[in-house]
C-alpha cells in the first residue's frame, strides 16, 4: 500500500491512528492510551461502498470521525481526491490531515455524514427546513428563495413531502428522520458520505426502505459510501468491498463476495458464522468465540485476536501480524492466513 494508487480512488487512508489519553490522579496526568484506531489503512473508490464492520468498541466509528477531522488524528494520512486546491483544475490527492481549518471547511462540501441515532442527530429545536438548509447556510450558499426550492427538491428526492418543511423532528418517525438526515447530507452535493450505522436503529421494514433509498441515491448522484455498521448481513447487502475491524485494527479487507465466501482471517470466519440465519432448518455450525473483546487500552501481545482464536499458535501471541495483500485486492492481517482453510457463509 505504499505506492500511490491512482485508479479512481477517492479516499485513501494510510496508517491512521487515534489514541485517546487516559487521565487519572489529582493532576489528571496521562497514564495510558486507549488505542481506538491503531494503524488502519483502507481506501474507497469513486461511486463504490466500502463497508466497515466490527463489534462495538472496535474503533470503526472513531476511524470515520477521525478521517473527517472531528477528532484530531494521532498519526497517519488520509488522501482525498479533489480539484478544489489544484491549479490546473484536475483532481488530485490532498492529505486531509495537512489542511488548515478553512481548507478543511472547503473539503466538507465533498464529504458529508449521516448518523446512527435518528433522534439525536437532528436538532429538536430546528425545523426541517433549517436542518436541511444548514450546510448550505454554513457554506454561504443558502440565501434567497431558491434555498427553499432546493430543500423541497431534496426532501422529495428522499421521499418526504414538501409540506414537511415547516415541521420539527419529533413529529416524524425514525425512518423519516433518517431521510431528513440523508437530505441534509446531500444538500452540498458531496462525493463521499460517511454513514455511521444508518439503519441499525430502524425497524426491519423501514431498514429495507432506507437501504434501497441509499442505493438509489448512490447511483443517481454517483456517491461513494463508507458504510460503518455492525450488522454483517446489511453490510454485505450494500457494500462492494468490506473491511473487518477488531480492536482498532483492520483484520481483513476484500471484495464483498470474496470476503464472505473465502474469508482469510479467523475472526471474519467466527463473526460470519455467529450471525443467526433466518432459516429454522439451518443447523448452525458456528465457531463460538470464547471470552470478550480485548480491551483497547490494554491489548494482548501479538495478534489482538489470539486469545479468542481457535487456530492460534505460538507466533500469534508473540508477533503482531502484518496487514498484507495476500490475493489481489484481498488484504489480511493473520500469520496463518496462507495455511488455514476457513469456511465462508
Amino acid at each position: 500500500m505504499v505506492e500511490q494508487r491512482s485508479d479512481n480512488i477517492i479516499l485513501d487512508v494510510r496508517g491512521l491512528k487515534k489514541y485517546f489519553p487516559i487521565r487519572s490522579g489529582f493532576f489528571r496526568q496521562v497514564t495510558g492510551h486507549v488505542k481506538a484506531v491503531d494503524d488502519v489503512s483502507f481506501y474507497v473508490r469513486e461511486g463504490e461502498t466500502l463497508g466497515l464492520v466490527g463489534e462495538s468498541g472496535c474503533g470503526k466509528t472513531t476511524a470515520s470521525r477521525t478521517v473527517m477531522r472531528l477528532y484530531d488524528p494521532t498519526g497517519g494520512d488520509a488522501f482525498f481526491k479533489t480539484e478544489k486546491f489544484s491549479a490546473s483544475g484536475e483532481p488530485e490527492m490532498v492529505n486531509l490531515f495537512e489542511l488548515d481549518k478553512e481548507q478543511m471547511k472547503v473539503i466538507r462540501r465533498d464529504i458529508s455524514m449521516i448518523f446512527q441515532d435518528p433522534v439525536n442527530s437532528l436538532n429538536p429545536r430546528m425545523s426541517v427546513f433549517d436542518i436541511v438548509a444548514e450546510p448550505m447556510v454554513i457554506h454561504g450558499m443558502g440565501a434567497g428563495p431558491e434555498t427553499e426550492e432546493t430543500v423541497i427538491s431534496l426532501l422529495e428526492r428522499v421521499g418526504l413531502r414538501p409540506e414537511h418543511i415547516r415541521r420539527y423532528p419529533h413529529e416524524f418517525s425514525g425512518g423519516q428522520r433518517q431521510r431528513i438526515g440523508l437530505a441534509r447530507a446531500l444538500s452540498l452535493h458531496p462525493k463521499l458520505i460517511f454513514c455511521d450505522e444508518p439503519v441499525s436503529a430502524l425497524d426491519v421494514s423501514i431498514q429495507a426502505q432506507t437501504l434501497n433509498l441509499m442505493q438509489d441515491l448512490q447511483s443517481d448522484f454517483d456517491l461513494a459510501y463508507l458504510f460503518v455498521a455492525h450488522d454483517l448481513s446489511v453490510v454485505q447487502h450494500i457494500s462492494d468491498r468490506v473491511a473487518v475491524m477488531y480492536v482498532g485494527k483492520i483484520a481483513e479487507m476484500a471484495e464483498s463476495n470474496e470476503l464472505y465466501n473465502n474469508p482469510l482471517h479467523p475472526y471474519t470466519e467466527a463473526l460470519m458464522t455467529a450471525v443467526p440465519k433466518p432459516d429454522p432448518k439451518y443447523q448452525s455450525e458456528r465457531v463460538i468465540m470464547q471470552g470478550d473483546v480485548a480491551d483497547p487500552s490494554n491489548p494482548p501481545p501479538g495478534c489482538y485476536f489470539h486469545p479468542r482464536c481457535k487456530y492460534a499458535k505460538d507466533i500469534c501471541s508473540q508477533q503482531e501480524p502484518e496487514f498484507r495483500e495476500l490475493r489481489p485486492d484481498h488484504f489480511v492481517a493473520c500469520h496463518r492466513a496462507e495455511e488455514l482453510d476457513l469456511r465462508g457463509v
Binding site: 470521525r65 454554513i138 441534509r184 460517511f194
Partner: peptide, 9 residues
C-alpha cells in the same frame, strides 16, 4: 446533531 453540524463545517 452537534457532531453533524461540525461535520458540515
Amino acid at each position: 446533531y452537534v457532531l453533524a453540524a461540525t461535520s458540515f463545517g
